[in-house]
Computed example of a mutant assay.
Amino acid sequence: MAQVVGITYYPVKGCAGISVGQAEVIPSGLLGDRVHAVADDNGDLRWQGADPRLALIVPEPRADGGLTLRAPGHEPVTTGAAAADADDGDADDAADRWLTRVLGRPSRLVRAVAGNESRLHVVSRASLDALNRRIAERGGRPLPMNRFRPNLVIDGWETPHTEDDTPLLTLPGTTLALARLTVRCAVTLVDQETGRRAGSEPLRTLADYRRAEGGVVFGAYFAVRRPGRVAVGDEVTGAG
């Protein structure tokens, strides 16, 4: 039986995720997922490929709509509820100054613009196990699932990459439709625990057997067909 074994959402795009036992699924994805982002002084969004220390920033949503941001070696900072709803999308100055210190470059907390982040990212354990076997054959160390920053982790599929070939996933509280495969980038090279690049894996190995139009792929994005809820332990039924 295939089932959900992990649920993670990312309040700030590019920053650390929050793992939960259950989550609300809204038309745009998991509630609270990638609502904010970090931008530079030109308004361009920062990403872990260029700013790997983003992985060390842990955002904690607050009941009033604000965030508490934490990072090793820095006192936490709290954004206000008004900042989360500001018309211009910018958070308050304290958070901006804090992000600038942590990342070492001018940075601002902004509201994220809907895009790929509005879909549910699904990866199966079978896919990761198959990848890690190939990496081990080259003498490398296995990689944790968080390198791929999924929203949902599914276990119980015998065949790797079943998520790539299943048009519809039905769960007790929601239904998801396959949108597209996930093209992987330099973010997968970042150790999510240290906030540093850590070698050439998994991209080196994925390039051997997971090439597709647009690059190498691993995991898949799913659009929400039926909003509702998802919980760890939910059975997952696939339809062709």
Rank of each mutant, 00 (worst) to 15 (best):
L31H: 12
P52C: 02
L178E: 00
D64M: 09
A2S: 15
R105G: 09
S28I: 02
D92H: 03
L31N: 02
G115D: 15
L31W: 09
A55T: 12
R125A: 11
G80N: 12
T166M: 07
W157N: 07
G139H: 07
A23Q: 13
T182M: 08
A186R: 13
L171D: 09
E137S: 11
G156C: 09
P202A: 06
R149M: 03
L152C: 05
P202T: 02
A239P: 00
L128N: 04
G80M: 11
E24S: 11
L54W: 07
L99H: 01
D234E: 10
A39C: 11
E75H: 07
G215R: 09
R101P: 00
D85Q: 13
L103E: 04
N116V: 12
I7S: 02
N132H: 05
L178N: 01
A86L: 00
G219M: 04
A114R: 14
G173T: 08
P76H: 03
R105K: 14
T159D: 12
P59T: 10
A239H: 15
V236R: 14
S107I: 10
T162L: 10
A198C: 08
L30M: 02
A55Y: 10
A114K: 11
A84P: 04
W47C: 01
R53V: 09
L103S: 09
V102D: 03
R225E: 14
T175R: 15
A55I: 11
V113K: 13
E201P: 01
V217D: 01
G17L: 01
R210C: 10
V35Y: 09
P172K: 05
E201H: 02
R101F: 00
V38T: 07
R180V: 11
L109E: 07
E163F: 02
Q48M: 14
A55N: 10
A84G: 14
T79Q: 06
G66I: 08
C185V: 08
V113T: 14
P227A: 02
G104H: 08
N132M: 08
A177M: 03
L54F: 07
L131P: 01
V123I: 15
T237P: 00
I57T: 06
D96R: 10
A179P: 00
T205V: 13
P61V: 05
A212K: 07
C15Q: 06
L178S: 05
D64N: 14
R229V: 11
R180E: 15
R204P: 00
D164I: 01
D41L: 12
R211K: 12
T159I: 13
A126Y: 00
E60W: 00
R149Y: 04
D164E: 14
H36G: 03
L189Q: 10
P172L: 03
R204A: 15
G21M: 10
G49N: 04
L176G: 07
I135N: 08
A112Q: 12
R108Q: 13
L152R: 05
L143Y: 01
D155P: 06
